[in-house]
Nucleic acid binder design. Structure first.
Lengths: 210, 210
DNA sequence: CAATTTTTTGAACAGTGTTCATTAAAGGAG
DNA sequence: CTCCTTTAATGAACACTGTTCAAAAAATTG
């Protein structure tokens, strides 16, 4: 038998995650149904709950997979950028945009999904998110050699969030909705804008609140 | 009787919207229930559907109200900024941040809520959203006197989206989560960063896709 | 093969949003 | 005021959720 290598339980889990991923990809997170997942995975409805505590845990597993796929894309992109030594932020930003466009429903699920009670995501999942931020923090560190690690992380998060905001509001057609080519232009320009400003140290404003 | 001034029907509508708003404010959109709204508004469950087609229409009404509240805040802020003639973007951005912090659940509902089938929001609601963008477009127009109306609108949308991304991901604790004071600093700096870059005309990159 | 343990099952349950026959209220005519 | 018509409000019932758990099936053990 050569080492079971994969218990039936693990196999079921894998099938469920894959089914859920397919369904989200095709119909969006909002139309995901426990019964559909079970049917597509070829098990009874109750089977789902022998492997996952609830639907949220299953969605988390799908989102985890999506994050890793995104990580692959960004890794490839930052390696290319290293070789060509320029426009790292632009490349990463556009790669993020393209990933979101090409995997709309899966990407969307990353942000649509929220745990009951607004509970925070489990730590292992938060770590997966942090990994993505590191793709931005790395080149940022060389661009801001005098900044503290903490400042770099904070800035990297801001950069990601800014790009994400543009991509997100556009693709979700909220407030803004641009034609595809305009969107690409805006994302690219914003990335460069942000990249250019890192030379300057953060300026402190004491009188912030009105 | 001095002009009914408000039919019973309109009165019911008003009570329902106010109840829904209170419930969203207190418990978040995800915990909003038709039965709770009806109970708080003092009508039967079915009464809700004599005034609104469905829950989504009611939520849209609440969101509309929230947008107008936000509009008031931003209007005030841009008038102050006009008087003091500086840092318009910073002021508007921080005002947006503060509004989101102080009305977390209502603000959150603006983006959490999506119509079935990912149907687009009705036109009147899209117009309400566009009105907000104009607060950014106006000062932008004076900062970029040579740009076309179209470019200014696109840039204003990008600016809003960028700031929104930072505020959003922070307050929702997704990917990034900063302590309150750091967040304010990052939003303020990002606003200035973006403001500073408008002097430069958008740079065109022909080789965008990897 | 029988006994025991483990796994799988899907009917049943406690909620959802929505409908619509039934009831209550309001309005009008004599 | 009474009777009739019209309009509005009601909430039980429905279809569809995620989740549970007694029962059946399968696997394991002696």
């Amino acid at each position: 038998m050569a080492d079971k290598q994969e218990s039936k339980r693990e196999n079921l889990k894998k099938r469920l995650v894959e089914s859920a991923r397919n369904l989200i990809e095709q119909q969006g997170l909002a139309n995901l149904r426990a019964r559909d997942i079970a049917k597509q995975a070829g098990c009874a409805l109750g089977g789902l709950y022998t492997v996952f505590n609830d639907i949220d845990a299953l969605i988390l597993a799908v989102n985890s997979h999506t994050l890793h796929e995104m990580e692959k894309v960004l890794l490839r992109e930052s390696q290319i950028a290293e070789d060509m030594d320029s426009h790292v932020f632009r490349r990463l930003s556009l790669a993020y945009l393209h990933f979101a466009q090409q995997n709309h429903n899966l990407w969307s699920a990353l942000f649509e999904h929220q745990l009951p009670n607004n509970a925070p995501a489990p730590e292992w999942h938060q770590n997966e998110q942090s990994s993505l931020i590191r793709f931005i923090a790395a080149p940022l560190a060389t661009a801001m050699p005098d900044a503290s690690q903490e400042d770099i992380t904070a800035r990297a998060r801001t950069l990601f969030a800014a790009i994400h905001g543009v991509v997100s509001l556009s693709l979700e057609n909220r407030f803004i909705g641009l034609p595809e080519d305009k969107l690409e232009q805006e994302v690219g320009n914003l990335a460069d804008m942000l990249a250019a400003s890192h030379a300057l140290p953060p300026h402190h404003h004491p009188q912030d609140r009105a």
